[in-house]
Design a protein around this nucleic acid. Sequence first.
DNA 1: ATAGTCACCTGAGCGC
DNA 2: TGCGCTCAGGTGACTA
Length: 269
Amino acid sequence: MPELPEVETTLRGVAPAVLGQRVAALTVREPRLRWPVEVPDTVAGQRVVRISRRAKYLLLHLETGALILHLGMSGRLRVVSGNAPSEKHDHVDIVLGDGMALRLTDPRRFGSLHWQPGAWQDHWLLRGLGVEPLSDAFGGSYLFDGSRKRRVAVKNYLMDARVVVGVGNIYANEALFKAGVRPRTAAGRVTRARYGALAEAVRETLMAAIDLGGTTLRDYVGSDGAPGYFRNELFVYGREDRPCRVCGTLLKGIRLGQRGTVYCPRCQG
DNA sequence: ATAGTCACCTGAGCGC
DNA sequence: TGCGCTCAGGTGACTA
């Protein structure tokens, strides 16, 4: 599913349709998502004053709180006509005042929807999150300082949301390749210089992916139904046993924390 | 505290 | 055609 660039693409896609609208109603056809969907009736009638992203969460800021939405592995958010017939995995509609609706579709139901009254930052899911990779707080020094003595693989370290958010399996693989760092290396043994390159690679990879509307692998499409074109830019993800696009060496596939991991034995390390 | 594994759920693709 | 297995853009809860 969506990593940061896909969530950001979704945010930008739906923003014009929801900003300033009132939430007319919430239609919950299937409340059994990652956590039970329990949204009070008090959200009805409230205006959407802002829409933003924190990590891979989409935040719909209403007048007295925020709807916090996560797309999990297979989630999708689209703007549809309010009376559009629902299909199999269309679990929730956020019906808007103008007759349109934000529709959450999520076959695997790993996504979630919460209502947080007051300050969204206080929600338990968001409280312990690390820095945003596209913010000034993130950089080589930050990664280096936080990793001393840590023995986890640097790839797992990079995907740890308590450290830095938004970096999922695709972009972790790609950033490590770009920085020339071997995924299995212990985080505590990566040098300061390497972390500088890695932080830069994370930034560049995410920004390039956002520019191209994210990555479409199987079923992800943006809110407008268009696929993401970053797939064409992938160097290692999903390319095990195929030649490295840089040096021609066969890429190696391993498993790290039960996630598919691919790297070039020559370019990385 | 840290590292590793399990669990949640559906669908696609593969070998037999 | 069908069955069983593995894998998939995530991440909180456990365990040692």
